[in-house]
Design a protein around this nucleic acid. Structure first.
Length: 936
RNA sequence: GCGGAUGUGGCGUAAUUGGUAGCCGCGCUAGACUUAGGAUCUAGUGCCGAGAGGCGUAGGAGUUCGAGUCUCCUCAUCCGCACCA
């Protein structure tokens, strides 16, 4: 409750303009002071959880593109609250990360200070937009009492393995117990490499051996692998942090390097991550991106014997049906068997090739993918069925990180093998009929096996399963599923991240006890690597446990803190557990998640993995974190241009530029209105333009325009603060929604905002419809016409909100306001419900008018108005009358009439007779309440 | 190359199940009020045509009484993946 007595009577007679800045300031302050958006568990109400993707508070602050999603989710959150839900709508900051640290390196300022400053700036900007966040739940990932739980989850990952029989994570102690009883016999678990030992052997292993072996199974493990090394950032990056061999943050080159790193066994969850996509309400494109990223393919592992060696060569293929078409084998340049296979004669050229391949940057390797290169090892594998010798080659087109890093090449039925075989003139043997292998590889899986011994004449699919059966019987292979999804590298050689709760004893990792969490990020003198190349934490004094064991020097990556944050919002101040059972059982998971599609392969995979793990160990009750996902489209910039005559300081207006030789120059959009340049401001803008001359058309300088990315260098950035100042937050909120469908990318056109601002002024005017602009509501009973306008709007807004069509909802508000203004309606019974509808979109103006109307409680406590069909029922309909599908005119008919009755009336109608022009209609189609179509 | 999306006036867009294409807003044109207008209000505004009328949803074909909407082909733009065996 905001005030003890009603303002209503004191307002009568007072002249009021729509003073948005005063209104917005007043209500933002009131909402903050009364904590009106504070939420708590309330089992008497249904819950609804609306979440925005965790923002990283960058120094640049918000531009108009950022709030788009926040506005949409805020409208929906407010709408759900009106519909009786208990809505959780939190906000906080993904505060660890590279930009603050890079800034720290340059300036020496501690990243915590920068982060705090940036977050405050964000908060200020967000507050100005009137969001309904429950700020009591706010946290930053860099808060020790938040990252305590990030560290805790990591410890849990360390202490669990993935059981494939039960398809879930289980305590590693169970695995140890199993090993002591059965060794690796019959285990079916996610593992780095396939190990074999007996119970006896296990029991005799030393503590170190055991710990080393367990790393092969832990969900958070340490291993030496090929990593994406970014030397400019001085750290390793995950696959999703690298695009086209450049780091996503900063665009620095990335190379491959072999390093010992912490890794999360995300791949253990590949199948569940894929399956879960069928149960979430996300758009198809993002699900497809995730499916591709996970990249499931069914096939077989097959072992080929090697000539002159006891070792064998493992390959993965999706086409076991083509095994009789193998004409060579290919290994990736990193393959461990190369040394052994290579013959003396070939050693020199092999070494040269490998050296070249491995030293080539990943960028180079990827950019000339088309260029075929390879080298023969001199070694041979033995075909498992024909026993023929198959030459073994090395080529870059086989990747180390996928499958086994080795393939059986079947050039007749794989285009890459085909190109390679053609280039090196290797044999191409057709084993699936139906194509023309003299021209290209025949890759379809539908065809009949030929030249293939025991599978001749079979359908390819059948042939594949027979081959798999044979190799299984022979003990040289098995059916398997391979994923493109790799385990996630989890170490960063950086300062500004969560320290690992890990110490080393005899160089083996152990977790700190939970009671010692959080392990605080230590102070360092510089945020740079140490002289001997260790990560910045190597600079910290006493970076060791009480007992003197050294602590891990890497920190966690950005996605560590953002992977479970939505759960923590449910119970943010709990310092006893990650989240209480009660809070989790009530809030369950996120009902609506709004954010950009750029997180499709990173955050949205990691968060789902994290959640599934926490689900497995009983921390959360739902195995998918985000039920519905909406990706807001990007807001593009609309740049303006002036055209300077080449070599002169004279500018030609857009329409005349063809007559001169001109070069276009970006001009600040703030100097332009409706594409007309403010010449005086332009002259002041930059010294070089002070003396500029202009060639005008109709006395104006018209600028050209183009849609581009919003960026400072293009002078097309819109700052929301400026717009809030000029038009108010309510206008900005509604205009962002009015631009178009939330999911579409669309250009930001500053000009259009005035239309929405005009609408709000008109809405204000509805309440001030008298000569003196006094606030005035009539308590007269509304007319049927007024009720109809209101109720069709109630229905429309509700439907539009439910389908996230906020653009059409804004237009419906405009239509409704125009109609009510036309009939000069200022009846309380009409305008009060309308205020409630609009309050989700424009909360400030509605709260103000609500107070004026005599309400003592905030409008957010008002329930959504109930739609009553009675008021919108029609008893007649204006039928469009069309001839051969072309509408000619309209005729009104009672809805009581049957089609037959309408037909009779139609045939006797003079307008119809005119159009029939004496002909008789072949057919008359009458669809009640839709159309009349006369076929001639 | 593969996958996903999008294509409608000068511009952003609307048309929820196949049923009046262009709602709403911007811009533009004319007018009113005004010392003034980057304020407000009124009227008009898809294109061609004096008009009757014709043509129009990227282009082409098809299904249908009727297609922006469904089917097939082509083109353009954007996004994602890219030697994934």
């Amino acid at each position: 409750m905001y005030f003890c007595f009603s303002f209503y009577h004191s307002l009568i007679g007072k002249k009021m303009e729509y003073n948005f800045s005063e209104i917005e300031k007043k209500w933002q302050q009131t909402w903050r002071e009364t904590k009106i958006y504070k939420t708590d568990v309330d089992f008497s109400k249904p819950k609804y959880y609306v979440l925005d993707m965790f923002p990283y508070p960058s120094g640049a602050g918000l531009h108009v593109g950022h709030p788009l999603g926040y506005i949409a989710s805020d409208i929906y959150a407010r709408f759900k609250r009106q519909k009786g839900y208990n809505v959780l709508h939190p906000m906080g900051y993904d505060a660890f990360g590279l930009p603050a640290e890079q800034y720290a390196i340059q300036t020496g300022q501690h990243p915590a200070i920068t982060t705090l400053k940036n977050a405050d700036r964000y908060r200020e900007q967000l507050d100005r937009l009137g969001f309904s966040f429950d700020w009591d739940r706010e946290f930053k990932t860099s808060d020790p009492n938040y990252y305590k739980w990030t560290q805790w989850v990591f410890s849990q990952l360390f202490h669990h393995y993935y059981c494939k029989n039960d398809e879930k994570a289980k305590p590693i102690s169970l695995l140890e117990e199993y090993f002591s009883l059965h060794g690796t016999n019959n285990i079916n678990v996610a593992e780095t490499t396939s190990l074999q030992f007996t119970a006896d052997e296990w029991n005799k292993y030393s503590e170190e051996d055991k710990q080393n072996i367990l790393l092969n199974y832990r969900l958070a493990y340490i291993a030496e692998t090929w990593v994406n090394w970014c030397s400019d950032l001085g750290c390793v990056l995950a696959n999703d942090e690298v695009v086209n061999c450049l780091s996503v943050r900063g665009g620095f080159p990335v190379e491959r390097k072999r390093m010992k790193q912490w890794i999360l066994r995300v791949s253990a969850y590949a199948d569940r991550l894929l399956e879960g996509l069928n149960r979430v309400d996300w758009n198809d494109s993002i699900k497809e991106i995730q499916r591709n990223w996970i990249g499931r393919s069914e096939g077989a592992f097959i072992q080929f014997e090697l000539k002159n060696s006891k070792e064998s060569l493992d390959i993965f293929t999706t086409r076991p049906d083509t095994i009789f078409g193998v004409s060579f084998m290919v290994l990736c340049p990193e393959h461990p068997l190369i040394n052994q296979i290579t013959t003396a004669e070939q050693r020199k050229s092999v070494n040269e090739y490998i050296c070249k391949a491995l030293n080539r940057s990943e960028t180079d390797r990827q950019t000339d993918v088309k260029k075929i290169s390879g080298v023969f090892t001199g070694g041979y594998a033995i075909h498992p069925f024909t026993k023929q010798e198959i030459p073994i080659w090395i080529a870059e087109y086989v990747l180390a990180g996928y499958g086994t890093g080795a393939i059986m090449a079947v050039p007749a039925h794989d285009s890459r093998d085909y190109a390679f075989a053609k280039f090196y003139q290797l044999p191409i043997q057709e084993v699936i009929s139906g194509g023309d292998i003299s021209k290209e590889a025949f890759e379809t899986k539908d065809g009949i096996c030929v030249n293939s011994d025991f599978i001749n004449g079979m359908q390819a699919k059948e042939g594949a399963s027979i081959v798999i059966k044979r190799i299984s019987e022979m003990g040289i292979g098995y059916k398997t599923i391979n994923y493109r999804l790799r385990d996630a590298i989890f170490s960063r050689q950086r300062y500004w991240g969560e320290p690992f709760p890990i110490y080393y004893k005899n160089e083996l990792p152990y977790t700190l006890p939970d009671e010692e969490l959080p392990l605080l990020l230590p102070q360092v003198d510089k945020f740079l690597p140490t002289e001997n190349g260790e990560p910045p934490l190597g600079r910290a004094e006493n970076w060791q446990t009480k007992e003197g064991y050294p602590l891990e020097k890497c920190t966690m990556p950005g996605f560590a803190g953002s992977s479970g944050y939505y759960l923590r919002y449910m119970d943010p101040h709990n310092d006893q557990e990650f989240i209480s059972k009660k809070a989790n059982q009530y809030w369950e998971n996120v009902d609506l998640y709004v954010g950009g599609s750029e997180h499709a392969t990173g955050h949205l995979i990691y968060a789902r993995f994290w959640n599934k793990f926490l689900f497995d160990i009983g921390i959360c009750c739902k195995d998918e974190p985000f039920k519905k996902l909406i990706n807001q489209g990007m807001i593009q910039g609309r740049s303006n241009f002036v055209y300077r005559i080449v070599g002169e300081n004279t500018f030609v207006s857009y329409g005349l530029k063809e007559q001169y030789q001109v070069s276009p120059i970006h001009v600040d959009i703030n100097l332009v209105r409706h594409d007309v340049l403010d010449i005086e401001k332009f002259k002041e803008w930059q010294p070089e333009f002070a003396e500029a001359e202009f060639i005008l058309e109709n006395g104006k300088y018209i600028c050209g325009w183009e849609i581009e990315k919003m960026s400072k260098s293009k002078y097309n950035v819109q700052n929301p603060d400026d717009l809030v100042e000029k038009y108010g937050a309510d206008t900005l909120r509604m205009y962002e929604m009015f631009l178009g469908p939330i999911e579409l990318a669309k250009p930001w056109d500053t000009n259009g905002i005035e239309g929405v601002h005009r609408f709000l002024k008109k809405f204000w005017k509805l309440f001030h419809q008298n000569q003196e602009s006094r606030f005035e509501l009539s308590d007269e009973l509304p007319s049927p016409e007024e009720l109809k306008i209101l109720h069709k709007t109630i229905k429309k807004i509700e439907e539009d909100n439910e389908r996230f069509a906020f653009n059409t909802a804004v237009s419906a508000f405009m239509i409704c306001t125009n109609e009510l203004l036309d009939i000069q309606c200022n009846k309380r019974q009409i305008l009060e419900p309308l205020m409630i509808l609009l309050s989700a979109y424009a909360p400030h103006i509605c709260e103000e008018l609500w107070q004026f109307s005599g309400h003592n409680e905030s409008i957010i406590t008002a329930p959504y108005p109930v739609f009553n069909e009675q008021f919108v029922l029609e008893n007649s309909y204006k039928y469009p009358v069309s001839f051969n599908g072309k509408t000619r005119f309209q005729k009104e008919f009672s809805l009581q009439l049957t089609p037959k009755e309408i037909e009779d009336l139609i045939l006797n109608d003079n307008d119809v007779k005119k159009w029939l022009d004496g002909k008789s209609p072949k057919k008359i189609i009458i669809v009640p309440k839709k159309i009349v179509n006369i076929v001639i």
